[in-house]
Nucleic acid binder design. Sequence first.
DNA 1: TTGTAGGCGTTATCAT
DNA 2: ATGATAACGCCTACAA
Lengths: 335, 335
Amino acid sequence: MADVVTLDDVARAAGVSRAAASRALNGRPGVRDDVRERVAQAAKSLDYRRNRAAANLAGGSASVIGLVLGTDRLHDDPYATSLVESVARAAASRDHGLMLLMKEPNQTTSTRNMVRDGLVDGVIISSVVVGEPWIEDLLASNVPSVLVGAHPERPEIYSVDVENLESAAALVGHLLDSGCSRIATITGTLGRVDASLRLAGYRTAHEQRGLTVDESLVFVGNFRRGVGYDIADDVLGAAPDAVFAANDEMAIGFIDRARERSVDIPGDIAVVGFDGSSMHQHLGFTITSIIQPFDVLAETVVDVLVSQLAGGEAPTTTMVPPTLLKGDTTIWEIG
Amino acid sequence: MADVVTLDDVARAAGVSRAAASRALNGRPGVRDDVRERVAQAAKSLDYRRNRAAANLAGGSASVIGLVLGTDRLHDDPYATSLVESVARAAASRDHGLMLLMKEPNQTTSTRNMVRDGLVDGVIISSVVVGEPWIEDLLASNVPSVLVGAHPERPEIYSVDVENLESAAALVGHLLDSGCSRIATITGTLGRVDASLRLAGYRTAHEQRGLTVDESLVFVGNFRRGVGYDIADDVLGAAPDAVFAANDEMAIGFIDRARERSVDIPGDIAVVGFDGSSMHQHLGFTITSIIQPFDVLAETVVDVLVSQLAGGEAPTTTMVPPTLLKGDTTIWEIG
DNA sequence: TTGTAGGCGTTATCAT
DNA sequence: ATGATAACGCCTACAA
């Protein structure tokens, strides 16, 4: 182990006390500019790094954030995967560490423990898990936290969100305006916020046009590709002229099966999804979808958390604008 | 913030000193059994958790491991994604935290910093990045580390590996034995260990049978699906009767393109891949491939690191057996 | 076997 | 504006 440079070394090199050096390095007031400069120089030339464990212990911050996921699998969950990737990047760019706190199959006290153990300053929580006991437990411990995706029952918690309902409504609305009249939907996992909102958007689009939703066109899914495939026969049986899947994965599953049955997409049936994850999969086509702006989302959520940690204020809920991806699974008018 | 239970509280409740309590809790010798029991009871009833930052600072361990990835993207890298997932699970099951240390695009001192900052006890490194400056830098700092995938130039570093070369040789050998005579290969990223080994396996299979590799059948890829697709025309131009792609992603890309050109797989051309990631993608078919045993791999690598941290010994390199997946892209004899 | 005491590196308080 | 000094919670010689 190489020799460790401590704050003491820096202070000595700069000819000041530890306290002054600490203040200088942390940009706190009450330090003369020339001293601040001198300390900075010393730190740089000694290649000093503060020990975050010590800082944390002493009442400072470790600059580590936890990312709490509502799933224990990444390999078939592009949404979670992209979230991890983007948050990791955003955290790193702000010199924060990222601890991955995945849901555990069996006992689930460990997430809260990780936080209690004092190595995480705050957490980013995928809002889909709000309501689950282990999360309530976590929230009850008052750890600074920010939700990815607002949660209707917890409006008081800081959150960063994309407009699920409005986006879904716009997407479905467009289908309706394009002449589709029997739009089926494959929902996400019942009980999950994003699933509810997207379904609500589907209904809203109809209501806004004075239409009534044919409930036999609503199929319950779970965000996994497999269910899209498995349920496709039922969906096709309802003879829709369009399908709104609550995410791209299910849309892909549906399309796979539809094509096996020689259904032409978008000729016979238009398909739209959500998340934009089909873009990265080299499927040979892209699905018309709402693209989650993961990088912006992640940067925003990290910023909100960090400023919360710093004691700063932020709007309770921040909206991030998604993008509409015009893919190959719908027909677009010229222009 | 809830009241924090400290070691002191536990000790007091158990009627012993902090030192004794510490020893008892950490399972060190020199504690009477009844005391040990009493302390355990007290800890449990108080719902005590040791502050890992403090433990770390005091010379103990934070029980946090870092996972160093050679990429900054997960969304199109099933291998990295599965590794993250499995390692996270394995770490959690051993009560260790997991810090994600992804490669950063620009400056890359931060990984080493994260380690130096004292919040990571040891690291798991994807061996594909060994040789890159930032990793050499990291290794030079003598952090306990374990490689996922052995590295030929660094045999002294603990590592856990699957038999890339042997597996690839077996796979290609089988193709040869099945009557294929012009087997093309699409390699992984040149310079990456796994890519080299798999290519070496391809050559070995030929040599073992006294055959010479037709170098015009070797195509350089990069492990990404897109390149499999893009290079497919060239590969087809070489009129192979089989293709060995260095991972499933490229195999998928190749198959996509081949099918667009009405090539029958496996009828006209057999295809084999590596990693087994096609299993999770609901493609409508599975690729004959070598399945990476991610869970075993992850558990093993975490165990090796943890025992290393504990001062224990372990074999320098541990092999984990992969599995052959007989998929739909090759023809198998009866039985 | 057990307790006492010192220190890990930093931040925060309170004098100066 | 600056510098002692006391925590923070834990581990670990060393002493008893």
